[in-house]
């Protein structure tokens, strides 16, 4: 019997996947399977409304695209997906948006030629195109964990003072290379510049997302779900995950695990 089943919606997977961002959903699925949680993945793209599919979602994923690709989904995103995402935000559902996806969740994006592309304002803040690209390994302190990844973005994002970020930059550039903030969080929606892929690089954060999703859907946390599924903590093998983090040589000194 399926005790727990989560539905993940992958937004524009064939368009918004600039560099390995699909690793997030692949790893999320793997991690759920470790805990005995069933997972259903629905790919959603341009054109149709997909209202039903979006309503069934517990978590949304969206990556970044090249400029041309982002322009392509822009209209569809506004017309077809904006409302359902705002509703989902209010229902405490979860979203992980990377890079270009993250920028679309802010107030607006100002391109190099001054053109403004509105975002859906889940996060209060805006992005300005800039040069050079901010590229390299990044470490971010988020509560008591250190998130790591690889950033590669031309856009500089400036958050309003009341807007939560996901952490403080220990090494790298983060949102804009200046104010030491990285990413943004509103409710259970997260935006970040970190590729890596992000979730396999940060299995603790992946567990946190699973935990949030379970609480939201079933009112149990991950620990309780593990008990119900009879999965022991000791059976979870994080050896590769931990060592993969340690292999990032220039971030080593920021990592506790």
């Amino acid at each position: 019997m399926k005790k727990f089943e989560l539905t993940a919606v992958d937004l524009y997977p064939e368009i918004m996947n600039i560099y390995g961002d699909r690793g997030n959903i692949i790893y999320f699925k793997y991690r759920c399977s470790v805990y005995g949680i069933e997972i259903k993945i629905i790919n959603i793209t341009v054109g149709k409304n997909y209202k039903e599919e979006c309503e069934s979602a517990d978590i949304f994923f969206m990556g970044g695209g090249q400029d041309a690709e982002q322009a392509l989904i822009y209209e569809d995103f506004f017309a077809g997906k904006k409302n359902i995402l705002m509703e989902s935000l209010n229902k405490n559902k979860i979203m992980l948006a990377i890079c270009g996806g993250y920028q679309l969740l802010c107030d607006y994006y100002k391109s190099a030629d001054g053109k403004i592309m509105k975002g859906i304002s889940v996060f209060k803040g805006y992005t300005e195109s800039g040069a050079p690209r901010l590229t390299g390994n990044i470490a971010v302190k988020s509560n008591d964990t250190v998130l790591i990844g690889f950033e590669n973005h031309g856009g500089r994002t400036y958050l309003e003072s009341g807007q939560d970020c996901i952490g403080t930059v220990l090494r790298g550039y983060g949102n804009n290379g200046k104010d030491k903030t990285e990413g943004a969080r509103t409710g259970n929606f997260f935006g970040t510049y970190m590729h890596g892929s992000f979730l396999p690089k940060n299995f603790v954060f992946c567990d946190y997302l699973i935990d949030l999703a379970l609480q939201n859907k079933y009112g149990v946390n991950l620990r309780e779900a593990m008990e119900i599924n009879d999965v022991k903590t000791g059976e979870i093998d994080d050896n590769f995950e931990i060592k993969a983090r340690k292999d990032v040589r220039d971030l080593k000194r920021f990592l506790k695990f």
């Binding site: 996947n17 560099y19 390995g20 961002d21 699909r22 690793g23 692949i26 590229t135 390299g136 390994n137 690889f150 590669n152 590729h195 890596g196 892929s197 396999p200 590769f240 060592k243 993969a244 340690k246 292999d247 990032v248 040589r249």
Partner: peptide, 30 residues
């Protein structure tokens, strides 16, 4: 410098054909 690209390789298709994998280099655990 970015190793993310291996997540775009279709290892899932070939998993049953890999008898043993030994990994070396600077980022073997990724």
């Amino acid at each position: 410098r970015d190793v993310s690209w291996i997540w775009d390789v279709d290892f899932e298709k070939y998993k049953d054909y890999i008898e043993n994998a030994v990994i070396s280099g600077l980022r073997p655990y990724d």
